[in-house]
Design a protein around this nucleic acid. Structure first.
Lengths: 195, 195
DNA sequence: GTCTATATGAAGATAGAC
DNA sequence: GTCTATCTTCATATAGAC
């Protein structure tokens, strides 16, 4: 039985999000038009509005999905790990997760200012939750005297910034493999917190 | 002797750049219109074109000025310092310079993709020159066995990312003074490179 | 579900009066 | 040097035919 001509809701939806992701990351949310997204998908601009109520929702959905997946990955953290093990796990997970999703990460950091206030609040809460999990690890390591960290809050921000910075230069197939990069960063993180 | 009515070239020029800086940092280059800039300056849109040939030049000038000032500050590095002293100097200078110029830093990192290819190439060369000065410090410290760094290139990117990240949270008048922040970051940098 | 056509507004940049 | 007015293009979003 042939489908209705031109009816592709099940595949067009993901394609719209993929095109928006790619174009927002490359040119920035404000610089990308709905017509550009439609062109990349291969439909006319009007058809996009079957998949998103507006451009803002497209951005918000991309960021919310990204942050939700990040938090889900974080929740795979093994129970009963020592602070050092937990920190190594966090470090490697962060590097792997972020290096696999350069476009999502770029958008999540760069397009915060293009969210409506309501949407911004929601995304910020997700990000804060992620940061808190690292801060908790650092505080537990300070309590157990495994780490030497004078200010866990600042150390949290410093470590996350250092790790996320990998996306500014790392490319699969370059001079170093991801496994090598993980090892080098873990070595620096470990030393930085005095473990 | 009264000036020609409405003639203010000597003060309007800097005001145009200041308004563009502020608005680009807040909303992003692509999202800011020439009319918005004009409104902030207190002139009509057409008058802006006495001070810049177009919007792109406005962005490029801001970024070029910022990077040139950064390189000038770097050149104040004292001669004859040990690798550890040079690294501490770099760390504190970077933190001070960047925390004093949040808008410029934000633009310099976020709006690279909105430069024309020619302009992008010029800004990238300036940034590369800055990164090279840290890499040189790290390599000299490895040679002298003051540092323990397995990959100076990665360590360079990691340290710069960590330090620049201070702009995502540090505000003058907050919980910590800049001097305290400097000390905490220098402590982490020092340990991260094994000094 | 997708198309064409369009309503409505705003963008960058320029011309010419003062 | 700044203004007003305008050219031209493009934007988001919607209406209604197929």
């Amino acid at each position: 039985m042939a489908r209705t001509q031109g009816s592709h809701s099940d595949i067009t939806g993901p394609r719209v999000r993929a095109a928006a992701l790619h174009l927002f990351a490359q040119h920035g949310y404000a610089a990308v038009s709905m017509r550009q997204i439609a062109r990349e998908v291969g439909v006319q601009a009007g058809a996009l509005y079957n998949y998103t109520p507006d451009k803002q929702s497209l951005l918000f959905d991309l960021m919310q999905t990204h942050m939700t997946e990040l938090l889900a990955a974080r929740d795979d953290m093994p129970d009963g790990a020592t602070p050092v093990e937990a920190l190594e796990h966090f470090t490697r997970l962060h590097l792997r997760f972020h290096s696999e999703r350069p476009d999502e990460v770029f958008i999540a950091y760069m397009e915060l200012r293009n969210l409506t206030p309501e949407n911004f609040t929601k995304i910020e809460a997700l990000r804060r939750s992620y940061e808190d999990s690292l801060e908790t690890i650092l505080r537990s390591g300070v309590s157990s005297a495994d780490f030497e960290v004078s200010d866990p809050k600042i150390a949290t921000m410093a470590v996350i910034a250092m790790l996320t910075g990998v996306n500014t230069w790392f490319r699969e197939g370059g001079r170093l493999s991801l496994a090598e990069v993980e090892q080098i960063y873990w070595d620096m993180v470990r030393k930085a917190v005095g473990a």
